[in-house]
Design a protein around this nucleic acid. Structure first.
Lengths: 236, 236
DNA sequence: AATTCCTATTTGTAGGACAAATATATTTAT
DNA sequence: ATAAATATATTTGTCCTACAAATAGGAATT
């Protein structure tokens, strides 16, 4: 039994083989795969091992299996694995920073989509969201208020994947915000002293004026504390 | 045995339980997990099923197991699952569009990072990349030339996650470009007639001038065909 | 105190068994 | 002849036992 970090188990090989099989046979969602025993015999390994591999692919959403029918390929949700792995507790500070960078890039990057898609109904909804939100401290809303506004923004962008992605990353941001509160507080205080705080109200104004460039700048400023964190925070 | 699409198998439950265990016990990378038999007894299920669950988590990179030592939590690479699932053959047209949107958003969204990080050495490298590339048809380079330029851009942005993400998405773009060539060609021809084609040379110019706004516009225009595809392509 | 050896534990793999589901074939009823 | 009910065979999901290989930790030796 090989077991070191650099050797692959039979399950790893089986997994690879099955994926390979799908690609080589140009299988598409709906197509059937050989059943467990057939793979077991094809590879000369026990059914248990094949099942481990299948179990992985099932988890990823690449396949579905049903008694008697066997195993069929399905269109996988792209983020099944990602969603299980995003525990902030397990992530290094560098990974957290990367996640933040991703969020900043996306939030600025979807600007063009937003302005291409936004309707008056959307603006009205945003109006209501902003009207209902309540301030908690400096440049800080409740997690829920913050989420509601930004989720609506993402919704307007109209990209399911980005939407899902953000949803999954959200707990990471909540964690960071709380875990590094001491770092964010003075930044926000300074912003306030310099009168540079940009709130959802300001951002919404840019949307109403259909001012994409202004929106980007406003959003950049709104997220400035994260930018600061990303570039300047170091541990201890 | 429950087996319909809406029921969970024991392996699903075991997987959930183990993840739950990690969270509830606040385990961090390096910490040990109960071994297979213990989970088996804890849950009143067979070791086989526990192994299926562990196999999944091992694939995601959440855990590592070694003989005798047992199972330890590890910091997971975030995109292990994503990488196995990104087979363009399996993705619907809408998912492909979402991926393209993601790419557009990211490529525009990292602008601020790029201008915060870029050095003269980077510019020199980009110069060389651009100098070596060769045109193939209208607004078209070889896959490799195209990749080299954009990868370097991502590298400058300095975000490992985004970098990895783009690397994984690249084959999807290659696929789309080839698969929908007929759609892209007339768009590029029209752009050429209107003299609106923006090449890597133009983009590089903006970088050299430290013109972020100009860069964003240039990149937007450079990627315009994808934008077109995203908003206007329909099947048949 | 350092080294070697031994032992017990744990994962990785194999193979057999059976229940539950269900596609397909067969029989029965209308 | 068609529809409904039944039987059959197949396949996944689960459980069990067994053993090899690795190895952590203790025991024995130098």
């Amino acid at each position: 039994m090989k077991n070191s970090l650099h050797t692959t188990t039979l399950a790893d090989q089986a997994e690879e083989k099955i994926i390979e099989y799908i690609k080589e046979h140009h299988l598409v969602p709906g197509d059937a795969l050989p059943n467990e025993m057939q793979f077991s015999e094809m590879m000369g390994i026990s059914r248990n091992v094949v099942r481990e591999a299948m179990s992985r692919l099932r988890m990823l959403g690449l396949i579905q299996s049903r008694t008697k029918r066997g195993i069929v390929v399905t269109e996988p949700p792209l983020l099944n694995g990602f969603s299980k792995v995003l525990d902030p507790q397990l992530l290094s500070i560098n990974t957290l920073k990367d996640m933040m960078g991703m969020r900043l890039a996306l939030e600025i990057g979807i600007t063009d989509f937003i302005f291409a898609n936004i309707t008056n109904v959307d603006l009205k909804e945003l109006d209501e969201i902003v009207a209902r939100q309540k301030a908690i401290g400096i440049n800080n809303l409740s997690i829920e208020d913050e989420l509601k506004f930004h989720l609506k923004i993402y919704e307007i962008a109209g990209n399911q994947f980005i939407m899902k992605f953000q949803e999954l990353m959200h707990p990471v941001f909540v964690f960071s915000k709380q875990n590094y509160e001491n770092y964010f507080q003075p930044i926000n205080r300074k912003l306030q002293e310099e009168n540079k705080i940009i709130t959802h109200v300001d951002i919404l104004e840019k949307l109403k004026n259909r001012d994409a460039e202004g929106y980007r700048n406003a959003m950049r400023m709104h997220l400035h504390p994260y930018w600061e964190f990303l570039y300047n925070y170091t541990e201890k």
